[in-house]
């Protein structure tokens, strides 16, 4: 049993006569239920199929029109125009007269139609030019958006680099290395400390990403307050982790820096496994 959406998808092929018997039956069963929207869509598809006949018009022999009119007037109906030419000798002058009438009527309109045809051809050309122009505008907008994104990224990178430079340009800079703890995957990190400014930069390398409900948390191990939160982070796609931290001012001597795995958002005190540790 096909869904309504599947039936809708089949409508263009139904209008074209390109469905298999069982698919046709399914469409007809759906239409028989009185779905006006489906029926309306089918009408539109059918009209489209009808238009395809206009793709390749060819000049019909003039005797078809005459034979048709002869039939309509109750004359002996020929099975084909060529037969009509043989059997209906009297129809030949009639045919000529009929075609003359067609021509006279047609020539009255030909000026208008020719003008209209030229207008339509112009419209077609303009429509193509418009499509091409719109495509170029869309491509230009996409390129501009990409450039703006690139500039935004560069500005962010520049701001980060300036912040890092501000730390490393301070006198009395200290650097502490961190190593993986026992049973933790191989990784390394270091902390750059600037005591005059109280700022610190932490970097870690090769830490694996943790699940979405987990996060890495950096801790200062202090003399007076024990572990103090320094920031949470996730490694980027290159395995690089970075935290801009502030050194605690009233916790006494900084004894060590450590990284643990905690619940997403971080925790007040470390509860998860320690993966990196470095003594200051």
């Amino acid at each position: 049993m096909k869904s309504r959406d599947e039936i809708r998808d089949d409508l263009p092929l139904y209008a074209l006569g390109a469905l298999e018997a069982d698919e046709r039956a399914a469409v007809e069963a759906a239409l028989a239920e009185g779905d006006a929207e489906l029926a309306g869509e089918l009408r539109e598809w059918s009209e489209l199929v009808g238009l395809m006949a206009l793709e390749a018009p060819a000049a019909a022999p003039p005797d078809i029109g005459a034979a048709l009119l002869a039939r309509a007037r109750g004359a002996a109906a020929p099975s084909a125009p060529r037969v009509a030419r043989r059997r209906l000798g009297w129809a030949v002058p009639f045919a000529a007269a009929a075609m003359a009438l067609f021509a006279i009527a047609g020539y009255r309109e030909i000026g208008f139609r020719a003008e209209r045809a030229r207008t339509v051809e112009t419209i077609v050309a303009l429509r193509r030019a418009l499509d091409a122009g719109q495509n170029e505008i869309a491509a230009g907008r996409a390129a501009l958006a990409q450039r703006e994104a690139d500039v935004g990224g560069l500005r962010a990178a520049l701001a980060q680099a300036e912040a890092e430079l501000a730390v490393v340009q301070q006198p009395r800079l200290q650097m502490v290395s961190l190593r993986e703890t026992k049973d933790a995957p191989p990784a390394a990190g270091h902390v750059l400390l600037s005591p005059p400014t109280g700022k610190a930069l932490f970097y870690a390398f090769d830490l694996p990403r943790v699940p979405d409900d987990k996060v890495y948390e950096l801790w200062w191990i202090t003399e007076k307050q024990g572990p103090v939160r320094a920031g949470i982070f996730q490694p980027d796609e290159r395995g690089l982790s970075r935290v801009e931290a502030v050194m605690p001012s009233d916790a006494g001597v900084l004894q060590a820096a450590a990284v643990t795995i905690e619940a997403a958002g971080g925790v007040p005190k470390p509860a998860g496994p320690t993966v990196l540790l470095g003594k200051l």
């Binding site: 018009p57 021509a103 047609g106 139609r113 209209r116 045809a117 051809e121």
Partner: peptide, 12 residues
Amino acid sequence: RPEEAAELIERR
């Protein structure tokens, strides 16, 4: 059939 040509051209 000139009387039909324009009609055919525009649609075609």
